[in-house]
Amino acid sequence: MSIVFEKPHALSDVGFHYCPGCTHGIVHRLVAEVLDELKLEGETVGVASVGCSVFSYNYFECDMVQAAHGRAPAVATGVKRANPDKVVFTYQGDGDLLAIGTAETIHAATRGENITVVFINNCIYGMTGGQMAPTSLVGQVTQTTPYGRKIETQGWPINGCELVSQLEGTALAQRVAVNNVKNIREAKAAIKKAFTYQTEKKGFTFVEVLSTCPTNWGLSPQESMKWMEENMMPQYPLGVYKDKGAKGE
């Protein structure tokens, strides 16, 4: 018998601290599988963010740096410029990337920094206990919007992929989800493409992954997947928003 599926080598033996059903684990695994397949493990430096994914430096076997809140793309810029031959990626949540780190994200993209950003969008602040994130949906009940997010007071959600795709330096902006096997495979293909573009020095690559937070949404893992499909996908349509490597571009 041959092995069809096993834990990727680029993932350490440390068990994830994430809640049951949290899709961070799936995305961690996809990144590790891509590092394995592209044989980049020893060539990669990851930058961990602040949020639930703060401990991602324990989970990847590559070198990792822990950045201050929101500053992962800025730290990744420094790492990449000092080590242009290394593959550099950041792994950030929505509170990190689109709230406190909006400036760093946008400016890394507009400078066309040759780094990969894996952006986990689950519409909520997970680690701090379920407060409203910039990506929280209109009407979504969170700890800080107990009557639902209101446009008059909190405004509209930010669509990260659309935002970053407007910038010239961006080589790839794609939104994927991890709610079923098909989408997980597409997510892996997108992450692989992002890392490949980086090795080809095409520019800033950005993969937004729609993710779940069963604990702070107050739903079961199964209900969370359904909630993502019904509520998040209309606001955050899946697809490729910019691809400099595609034919005709």
């Binding site: 041959s2 059903g21 949290c22």
Partner: peptide, 8 residues
């Protein structure tokens, strides 16, 4: 999500 499963 927790890489529990190995398939042969």
């Amino acid at each position: 999500p927790d890489v529990v499963i190995t398939v042969e």
